Simulated assay, not measured.
Amino acid sequence: MDELPLPPLLHIDSVGHQTREAAALRRRAARGELLRLATGTYVAADLWQASTPRRRHVLRALAVVDRLDARVVVSHRSAAAVHDVPVIGEWPERVHVTDPARRSTQTSTGVVRHAAPLTPEEARVVRSLRVTSPARTAVDLALTSSFRDGVAALDGVLHSRSSTRDELTAVLDARPTARGRVGARRALSFADAGAESAGESWCRVLLRQLGAPPPVLQQAFPWAGGRDVVDFWWPEFGIVLEFDGLSKYTQARWLKGRTPSRVVVDEKIREDRIRDRPEVRGFGRTVWDELEHPVKLRAELLRVGLPLRTAY
């Protein structure tokens, strides 16, 4: 998870419910200056609006967990938010926790309590939160989510090196009676550290469903000034496929001091350089919209000459 400080939470408990300070917090909330995250816990509304959806969910977790039993551990998508494990879709409104003392999962206002065993090694303390380890988090998501979402989480922890395949396998093996274990095993077998984002993971799943041959991930093409790395490469067909996520044009780690328009120009120059290589016979691109409508991705793959073994 990034090291930027989160907006501070304001707690009525810390000032006393009947104090002037508590009354002032309530008045500020009534005026819209503060946002109530949980009973007696607020955050500045402007700082909330300036936060990313993932960081907002971490704030929800911090607000909620203070009022729960000490034995519970933040888990599933909520733990993914804390560890910055890739997920697809919206962050949940409710905070997910695992309670090893429960016999069944319970959903209540603001919280989903999962019933599952938990070893001391599978918990961490991050930002004062007790949270499942990256390996346990990814396995929990693989057990309870779709194949696509499980792959995204497993790819993410492998790519970030926060977990190894052996660690993930050990965590999954320790849950022999868990529902979803067969699907989780399939997702782990398919997981690949080469996927750099949730979008690339989703694209990998769709490529498999569309009958594309397995691609090489993050293939490097050296040239005199450096090297160009492509997302998907099929050497036997000379086909390149790039996934263009919005982050490439908005996030600092990709912009590297450039404007978005400069990134577009540089990307065009890079594409031309790759296309000019003798081993490259086709160059395709895909975006989030095509992942949501796979027929468009299929058309792009056929356009660049990639054979597909199944109909869609």
Score class of each variant (00 low, 15 high):
55 R>L: 09
78 S>D: 07
122 E>F: 08
223 W>V: 05
100 P>L: 04
183 G>V: 12
259 T>P: 00
71 R>S: 14
196 E>V: 14
54 R>N: 02
210 L>F: 11
278 P>Q: 03
128 S>D: 07
48 W>I: 09
297 L>G: 03
282 G>S: 11
299 A>W: 14
177 T>C: 06
58 V>E: 13
7 P>F: 12
58 V>K: 13
106 Q>V: 14
191 A>C: 09
263 V>W: 12
293 H>S: 11
122 E>I: 03
63 A>D: 01
220 A>G: 05
226 G>W: 15
24 A>G: 04
56 R>W: 01
39 T>I: 11
273 R>P: 10
18 Q>A: 12
250 T>H: 08
112 V>F: 07
294 P>S: 10
138 A>P: 00
32 G>A: 14
43 V>F: 10
31 R>G: 06
76 H>D: 08
57 H>T: 06
223 W>K: 00
66 D>L: 15
287 V>G: 03
227 R>N: 03
127 R>K: 05
69 D>W: 09
193 A>C: 08
269 I>C: 10
49 Q>P: 03
261 S>L: 07
248 K>C: 09
309 R>D: 09
245 G>Y: 10
152 A>Q: 05
95 V>D: 00
163 S>R: 05
129 L>A: 04
10 L>M: 12
159 H>L: 15
28 R>W: 15
207 L>E: 00
151 V>I: 15
154 L>P: 00
140 D>L: 04
279 E>T: 13
52 T>C: 03
156 G>H: 04
128 S>W: 01
173 D>A: 15
83 H>V: 01
26 R>G: 04
62 L>C: 10
256 K>Y: 02
108 S>D: 08
290 E>C: 11
64 V>D: 02
51 S>M: 14
295 V>K: 14
186 R>Q: 14
235 P>H: 03
72 V>C: 10
25 L>A: 07
162 S>L: 13
105 T>W: 06
173 D>R: 15
80 A>N: 02
223 W>N: 00
262 R>S: 10
3 E>R: 14
103 R>N: 09
152 A>E: 00
29 A>Y: 06
300 E>Y: 06
277 R>Q: 13
165 R>M: 07
9 L>T: 02
19 T>P: 05
211 G>H: 08
3 E>V: 12
224 A>R: 12
171 V>M: 07
136 R>K: 15
184 A>V: 02
171 V>C: 08
263 V>Q: 03
275 R>T: 13
190 F>P: 00
185 R>T: 14
75 S>C: 04
255 L>G: 00
244 D>T: 06
230 V>M: 09
282 G>Y: 09
225 G>L: 10
196 E>Y: 12
182 V>K: 12
244 D>H: 12
37 L>W: 02
22 A>M: 12
290 E>F: 13
47 L>M: 11
179 R>M: 05
203 C>F: 11
216 V>K: 01
175 R>E: 05
117 P>E: 10
